[in-house]
C-alpha cells in the first residue's frame, strides 16, 4: 500500500508515517494541501490512502479533499481526515466534499488501524491482532 500523509506538524507526520510503515505501507509526506496537490500531480504512483489534517497553511484539508475529488483519475484514492476538527457541521462538510473517513485527534495507533480495516485498506492480520487482541 502507498500512503500520503498531509499535516503541517512534522511530529504528527512522523507519528502517522511510523504507524503506516509498521503495517508495511510506503509513505510520502506533504506539509499542506498545496504541497500535497503538487506531489499528486507530479507522481506516477498515486497513493491508495491520503491522511489529511484540516488546519494547514496555504491550502487546508477541506479544500484539498474538494480539489482531489474534482479529478476522476483520483477517485480510487481513499481520503481520511485526521484532525481535531470534530464539530458536527464540519465533519458533515468533509464527508460531503468526498472524505471517506474521519479520525479525531488525539487518537491511539490502534484507532488508525481499525479505521483502515473499516475502509477495506489491507491491514496485516498480525498488526490488527496486536492492537485489538485484548
Amino acid at each position: 500500500m502507498r500512503a500520503l500523509v498531509v499535516d503541517d506538524s512534522r511530529a504528527m507526520r512522523a507519528l502517522l508515517t511510523n504507524i503506516l510503515r509498521g503495517i508495511g505501507a510506503e509513505v510520502v509526506q506533504a506539509t499542506d494541501g498545496r504541497d500535497a496537490l503538487e506531489q499528486l500531480r507530479r507522481t506516477d504512483a498515486l497513493p491508495d490512502l491520503v491522511l489529511i489534517d484540516w488546519h494547514m497553511p496555504e491550502m487546508n484539508g477541506l479544500e484539498l479533499v474538494k480539489a482531489v475529488r474534482k479529478d476522476p483519475a483520483w477517485k480510487p484514492m481513499t481520503l481520511m481526515m485526521v484532525t481535531t476538527e470534530s464539530e458536527h457541521e464540519n465533519m458533515v462538510r468533509a464527508l460531503l466534499a468526498g472524505a471517506d473517513e474521519y479520525l479525531i485527534k488525539p487518537f491511539t495507533p490502534d484507532a488508525l488501524l481499525e479505521k483502515l480495516n473499516l475502509l477495506g485498506v489491507p491491514v496485516p492480520e498480525q498488526a490488527l491482532a496486536a492492537v485489538t487482541g485484548g
Partner: peptide, 21 residues
C-alpha cells in the same frame, strides 16, 4: 531542538483544536 518544539506545538494544537470544537 526543532523536533521537540514541533512535538510540543502539535500537542498545544490538539488541545486548542479540541477546545475550539
Amino acid at each position: 531542538e526543532a523536533a521537540v518544539t514541533d512535538a510540543v506545538g502539535e500537542l498545544a494544537n490538539i488541545v486548542g483544536g479540541n477546545v475550539k470544537s
